[in-house]
């Protein structure tokens, strides 16, 4: 058991634990903060795979920008116990059963895939370094890359249009 293994297990436990805390904490602000911890754990996994660019972009975009917007909304909404709508018990059961069904489907789908046999390149691959990643993105995957950028552009235009309509 070398240091990479120890880090892997630590990060995995941290990710699962903080993800659980996101859905179990009573206070929505605490949920957002736990979600940030989850993002950090996932970024740690990226660093273990030597995907430095992905790790830092994950932190800049998700932890640094999107979660700040989440915090804004939640902090200003003043969510208290009294304002929270009371949900039926059967609704909670329905949610739990639906979630378990999704998990069953995912497990069944992943059980026989080829990924199981392939070990990830821990600490040695250099495709995640920025030069290689950039070259790959703009040659092999240039069409999906451009399509997703058009998607982002249309989302931005949509947000501006909705924001302007008073």
């Amino acid at each position: 058991m070398n240091i990479t293994h120890i880090l892997f297990w630590f990060l995995s436990v941290l990710a699962v634990f903080s993800a659980l805390m996101v859905i179990t904490s009573k206070n929505p602000v605490h949920s957002v903060l736990w979600l940030i911890v989850t993002f950090f754990a996932i970024s740690g996994h990226y660093i273990l795979l030597n995907a430095q660019f992905l790790a830092i972009v994950n932190i800049i975009v998700y932890a640094g920008a999107i979660m700040v917007l989440f915090l804004f909304v939640i902090m200003l909404m003043n969510l208290n116990k009294s304002t929270e709508p009371i949900k039926h018990r059967w609704l909670q059961w329905a949610g739990a059963i639906a979630g378990l069904c999704l998990m069953l489907v995912l497990v069944a789908a992943l059980k026989d895939t080829e990924i199981k046999g392939q070990a990830a390149l821990v600490n040695s691959g250099d495709i995640g370094l920025i030069k290689n990643l950039g070259r790959e993105l703009f040659t092999t995957y240039v069409v999906p890359f451009e399509i997703s950028s058009i998607l982002f552009l249309s989302a931005m235009v949509g947000a501006a249009v909705i924001g302007k309509k008073e």
């Binding site: 430095q52 660019f53 830092i56 972009v57 932190i59 800049i60 932890a63 640094g64 920008a65 700040v68 370094l129 920025i130």
Partner: peptide
């Protein structure tokens, strides 16, 4: 390898 982006990431967490 990500140098300046690291600074950027930490600054974005300063919020």
């Amino acid at each position: 390898n990500i140098g300046i982006l690291f600074i950027f990431g930490v600054v974005s967490l300063g919020v």
